[in-house]
């Protein structure tokens, strides 16, 4: 990862010095462990702050929306897929974005790391190959990365950037090793009553902070439906119906667009697993339309076009 960091810095410096781009979007070290921050480097000196670690969980595509300048961006598989999605949705042009393609080794879920150290404050986490060295005031222990990866990284299907103008490091293994079909839509086997119980349980802690929406590269509406007052589509309280309405509607808005980047789960301060919902939509789109979002600039997202042969499993006749 150190080498990747060096290469990202070198490429960023070169691009900025030669004036090929106006800025380079990447990650820099966070102020607390395991939370790298999105970072815009505008000068070659800024580029020295760029890093590439296993804690780069924000989806940088989110910061490209509506930009007019020419911008280079560090993109692993999911981020590059969202860039493709934004170009398809005309939020960005292919010409203005210079993709520094990186291979994602699978990112770490900081919540899972913290679970290994209950009631202890983690001061620093260093990477050492396939292990993490977790240190606090009176302890220093090693844990295996594979035990604390984010759930969506286990079932990743595209770890390499799907488009790139320049490769950082070498391309690597494409999948995370998990089988998406085994974990997608986990409630399908349950009865309606059990499904409802799981839904209530999953979202019961939501405080409506909208972090999931704000980090999502799909949620770029100028005014979100939850913020609208006239008409008011959704109540603004943390009462169950309001919370569920928000999450259900947001999930629907992402159907056929979600790349399962996991930014929503990583951003959630109370650890809600939104993928319980979004994985169902991903699965439906894959099975009904044989489509996975953000893989091909030339393709048309299935829900933005009508075709006479579109499947209609909902129509009872």
């Amino acid at each position: 990862m150190q080498e990747m960091t060096q290469q990202i810095r070198e490429s960023a410096k070169r691009l900025l010095e030669q004036g090929q781009v106006d800025c380079v979007l990447g990650y820099r070290k966070g102020t607390v462990p395991m939370q790298e921050r999105p970072f815009f480097a505008y000068t070659p000196e800024d580029a020295d702050q760029l890093v590439w670690t296993r804690f780069c969980v924000n989806n940088l595509a989110n910061f490209l929306i509506g930009r007019q300048d020419r911008i280079a961006v560090v993109a692993q598989g999911c981020v590059s897929r969202n860039i493709v999605g934004l170009i398809q949705e005309k939020q960005l042009t292919r010409e203005q974005v210079y993709v520094l393609g990186v291979h994602s080794p699978g990112m770490v879920d900081r919540g899972k790391v913290q679970e290994h150290f209950p009631n202890r404050v983690i001061h620093s986490v260093e990477e050492d190959g396939e292990e993490l060295v977790v240190s606090g005031a009176d302890f220093s222990e090693r844990i295996k990365v594979r035990d604390v990866k984010r759930n969506n990284c286990y079932t990743c299907t595209h770890r390499n950037a799907v488009i790139h103008d320049e490769l950082i490091g070498e391309q690597g293994k494409e999948t995370g090793g998990g089988n998406m079909d085994k974990v997608a839509a986990p409630w399908e086997k349950l009865s309606p009553e059990e499904r409802w119980e799981r839904l209530e349980e999953t979202f019961k802690d939501c405080i409506r902070c909208y972090a999931c929406r704000d980090v999502c590269p799909l949620c770029y509406c100028n005014q979100c439906f939850v913020d609208e007052n006239q008409p008011q589509w959704c109540g603004k309280t943390v009462e169950e119906t309001d919370v569920l309405t928000f999450h259900l509607l947001r999930a629907f808005h992402c159907a056929g667009r979600c790349t399962d980047c996991g930014a929503c789960e990583s951003a959630c301060p109370v650890g809600i697993k939104m993928r319980m919902l979004t994985s169902k939509l991903e699965k439906d789109i894959r099975e009904l339309y044989d489509y996975s979002p953000g893989l091909d600039l030339e393709s048309t997202p299935p829900l933005s076009v009508y075709r006479p042969e579109d499947p209609e499993p909902f129509a009872s006749g």
Binding site: P192, R195, E197, L199, L248
Partner: peptide, 16 residues
């Protein structure tokens, strides 16, 4: 909606 436990038969879609 059925996936989250809304009873089958409560929500209908048709093309008319």
């Amino acid at each position: 909606m059925e996936y989250v436990g809304i009873e089958p038969g409560r929500l209908h879609f048709s093309w008319i």
